[in-house]
C-alpha cells in the first residue's frame, strides 16, 4: 500500500515537472517578445525626449555602420562570386546562362543582401553591444547611470536602435553592389560570359521595388538585431559567465529573428498569408 502511494507520488511529481517545463517552453518566447516590445517602446519615446545626445548617436552609427563595412563587403564579394559560379555553370546546361545576372540581382536585392548583411552585423556589432551592456550591467555601471539621473535606455539603447535602422540598409546596399561585382568578375572574367549581356540583363530585370523591398527589410532587421543585442546585454545577470551567455544569446536570437522576420515580410509583401 505504502509502495503504491510512493509510486503515485513520484508519478505526480514527474508529471508536474514535465508540465511545468512544457509551459515554460511555450511561454518563454511570449515573455521574451513582451520584454523586447517594452524596451522598444521605451527607447523610441526616449529618442524624441531631451536631452538629445547627438554624440552618442554618431558614435553608435560609426560603430555599427563604419565598423561593419569591411566584413560586409568581404561577405558580399564571396556571396556574389559563388552565386555567379553556381548559376553560370548550371544555367549553361539549359542554355540560360545569360540570365545569371538577373537571378543574382533579384536574389541579392530581395533576400540575400538584407539577410546576410543583418547576420554579419549581428555577429560583429550585436555581439559586441550585448557584451558591452552586459559588462556595464554586472559592474553596476547601468545602476550608476540611474543614480546620476540619466535614463539608461535613452543613453544606451536609443542610439543603438537608430544606428541599426540607419546603417543596415546602407550596408545592405554596399553588400549588393560588391556582390554583383563579385558575380560579374566570376561570370565574365572566369567563365567568359558577355559583360554587356550580364549588365543589360541585370538592368532590365531588376526593378526599383525589388531594391526598396530589400532596404525596408534591412531596416527592420537592423532594428531587430540591435534591439535583441541591447535586451540581452541590458538584462544580464550572473557576472562574467552571464555576459558570455548574453552575448551568445544575442547572436542566436538575432539569427532566428532575422530569418523569421524575412519570411513574414516576404509573405506580406507578396500578399500571401503567413502560412
Amino acid at each position: 500500500m505504502a509502495e503504491a502511494e510512493r509510486t503515485s507520488t513520484q508519478i505526480r511529481t514527474w508529471l508536474t515537472s514535465v508540465l511545468t517545463e512544457a509551459a515554460r517552453l511555450v511561454l518563454t518566447p511570449f515573455a521574451e517578445i513582451g520584454t523586447l516590445y517594452k524596451m522598444l517602446v521605451s527607447a523610441v519615446f526616449a529618442i524624441f525626449r531631451p536631452p538629445f545626445r547627438v554624440g552618442n548617436y554618431v558614435a553608435a552609427i560609426e560603430f555599427v555602420g563604419i565598423g561593419s563595412i569591411f566584413i560586409v563587403s568581404l561577405t558580399g564579394f564571396f556571396t556574389g562570386a559563388v552565386l555567379g559560379l553556381q548559376l553560370v555553370e548550371n544555367f549553361r546546361k539549359v542554355g540560360l546562362e545569360n540570365q545569371t545576372s538577373a537571378v543574382v540581382g533579384f536574389g541579392l536585392a530581395r533576400e540575400l543582401g538584407p539577410v546576410f548583411t543583418a547576420l554579419m552585423v549581428s555577429s560583429r556589432a550585436g555581439s559586441a553591444m550585448a557584451a558591452q551592456l552586459g559588462s556595464m550591467r554586472v559592474s553596476s555601471q547601468i545602476d550608476a547611470l540611474k543614480t546620476m539621473a540619466v535614463h539608461p535606455i535613452q543613453y544606451l539603447v536609443s542610439p543603438r536602435l537608430v544606428a541599426g535602422l540607419v546603417t543596415v540598409p546602407i550596408l545592405t546596399a554596399i553588400f549588393n553592389v560588391v556582390a554583383v561585382f563579385g558575380a560579374w568578375l566570376v561570370s565574365v572574367k572566369m567563365l567568359a560570359l558577355d559583360s554587356g549581356i550580364f549588365l543589360d540583363n541585370l538592368k532590365q530585370q531588376l526593378q526599383p521595388e525589388d531594391i526598396t523591398h530589400g532596404l525596408v527589410k534591412a531596416s527592420v532587421f537592423g532594428v531587430a538585431v540591435c534591439l535583441i543585442a541591447c535586451r540581452q546585454g541590458y538584462h544580464t545577470s550572473g557576472g562574467a559567465e552571464g555576459v558570455g551567455r548574453a552575448t551568445n544569446r544575442a547572436v542566436v536570437h538575432s539569427a532566428i529573428a532575422i530569418l523569421a522576420l524575412d519570411y513574414v515580410l516576404t509573405a506580406l509583401s507578396l500578399g500571401q498569408g503567413l502560412f
Binding site: S135, M136, S139, S140, Q141, D143, A144, K146, T147, M148, A149
Partner: peptide, 18 residues
C-alpha cells in the same frame, strides 16, 4: 531626477564607465 541630483553614489567596485 531632482532628488537624485542631490545625492551621489560610490558603488562597491566603483562602477566607473570603462
Amino acid at each position: 531626477s531632482a532628488l537624485r541630483r542631490r545625492f551621489g553614489m560610490v558603488f562597491q567596485h566603483s562602477a566607473l564607465f570603462d
